[in-house]
Nucleic acid binder design. Structure first.
Lengths: 206, 206
DNA sequence: TGGAAAGTTGACCGGTCAGTCAACGCGAAG
DNA sequence: CTTCGCGTTGACTGACCGGTCAACTTTCCA
C-alpha cells in the first residue's frame, strides 16, 4: 500500500483526539485505529507517544498562525484594533472547533502544558518556546500601539504581553471546564485592559 | 491496626502527588504506597479514583480559603487593597508549595479541570461550582470597591470577576509550564487592571 | 460478653498501556 | 533484473492500570 500520508494522518488524528479529550486518555492504539494505521507504522515515524505530541504541537501552531493570527493582523486598522480582532478570531475558532469536536476544547497548548510539563521535558520546552513566540507577537503589537499613540509611551509592553498571554490561556481553560464557548467571546476582548497601567489601587499602593 | 486517619492520609497524599505531577500520571497503587495504605482499604473509603479526586478538590479549597483568602481579607484596608493582598497571598502560597513539592504546581483546580473536565462529569461539575464560588468572592470584593468609591459606579463587576478568575488560572498555568514561581508574583497583581473599563481601543470601538 | 459494623489485608482480575520485532511488499535506482 | 531501503503488518511483550473479593481483625455498643 505505502500510503504517502500515513504520518500526516497520525498527526491530524492525534491533534483532534487530544484536543477533544486529553493526552492521557487517548492512547497510541486509539490514535492508530482512528487513523487506520497499524501500530508498527506508528513507531516507524515516531519514537514515542511524546514525540508525536511535539509534532502535534507544531502543527497546531502553524495552523493557528495561518487561520487566526494572520487574518487578525490583516483585518485590524490599528495595532489595538488588530489585538481586538485577534480576540474575536480566537472566539470564532473556538466556536468552529466546538462544532467540529463536540466539546469546548480549550487551548491545545495549555492542555498539553498541564498534562505534560511536569512529566516530559521535551514537550515542556517546546511549549515554552512556543509561548515565548506568542508573547513576542503580542508585544510587537503593543509596541506598535505605543508608537501609534494608542498606548502611553511609558507602557511596559513586556509585562502587558505576558499578562495578556496568561489571560488568554486562562479564558480558554475556564471555557473548557464550563463547556461553554460563549465565555470566550464575552471575556477575551477584556484582555485589552491588561495593557492599561494604573488602576486606583495600583496608584494607592505607589 | 485500624488507624483512624487512613482516609485522611489518602486525601493528603493524593493531593500532594497530583498537584506535583498530574492526575493521570499518579495511580491508585502509587497513592496507596505513599500513604502506606493497602488497596483494599482505599476502595473501602472511595468507590473510585475519581471519587477521591472530588474529595481532594474539596480539601484543596477549604485549605486555600483558610490559608490564603481569609488572611488577605483581614490584611487589606480597603476592598481593592484586599484584592491586591489576595494576589500576593497566592504568590506566597505558590512559593511555599514550590519548595514543598519541588516543582511549580500551578492551580490544583485548573490542573484537574484540564485533565478531567472532558472525561468525568462529576469532577467537572464540582469544579464548576467551585469556580462559581471563587468568582462570587471576587465579585463581592469588586462590589464593595464600587460602594467604597474605589471603582466607578457603572463597573460591570460580574464580567470583571469572571475575567480576574480566568486570569488567575492562566497565570498559574503559565508559571507551571515555565516552572518559574516568580511569574506569579510579577504578573498576578496586574489582575486589578481587569476591573477598570474603557481602554483606548474599547472607546474607539464604541 | 457477644455480635454486628467498621476497617484491614493481600491475592487476584481482565483489560489496556506504550513499545518491540521479524517478516514482508513494493517502488525506485543501478 | 536485481538489489536496496522505506514503509507496512500483526502478533507479541511485560508492566501496570483501576477495581474486586473473601477472609480476617479491631472497635464499638448493647
Amino acid at each position: 500500500m505505502a500510503h504517502r500520508d500515513t504520518q500526516e494522518r497520525l498527526i491530524q488524528t492525534a491533534a483532534g483526539l487530544w484536543h477533544a479529550r486529553s493526552y492521557a486518555d487517548v492512547g497510541v492504539n486509539e490514535i492508530c485505529e482512528a487513523a487506520d494505521v497499524r501500530k508498527g507504522s506508528f513507531y516507524h515515524f515516531f519514537a514515542s507517544k511524546q514525540e508525536l505530541a511535539v509534532a502535534v504541537i507544531d502543527r497546531h501552531w502553524s495552523e493557528a498562525y495561518e487561520n487566526v493570527v494572520m487574518p487578525a493582523l490583516a483585518a485590524g486598522a490599528t495595532p489595538m484594533a488588530q489585538l481586538q480582532e485577534l480576540t474575536v478570531g480566537i472566539a470564532d475558532e473556538v466556536d468552529r472547533l466546538t462544532d467540529e469536536l463536540g466539546v469546548v476544547p480549550g487551548c491545545p497548548f495549555g492542555n498539553l502544558a498541564v498534562e505534560l510539563s511536569t512529566i516530559d521535558g521535551a514537550v515542556r520546552e517546546r511549549l515554552e518556546r512556543l509561548f515565548e513566540s506568542q508573547k513576542e507577537l503580542l508585544r510587537d503589537l503593543l509596541e506598535r500601539a505605543v508608537a501609534a499613540g494608542e498606548l502611553p509611551d511609558a507602557t511596559d509592553t513586556a509585562d502587558a504581553a505576558r499578562a495578556m498571554h496568561a489571560y488568554i490561556e486562562g479564558v480558554l481553560l475556564v471555557s473548557k471546564n464550563a463547556n461553554d464557548a460563549s465565555i470566550v467571546r464575552r471575556l477575551l476582548p477584556l484582555a485589552l485592559r491588561l495593557a492599561v497601567e494604573g488602576t486606583p489601587a495600583e496608584a494607592a499602593r505607589v
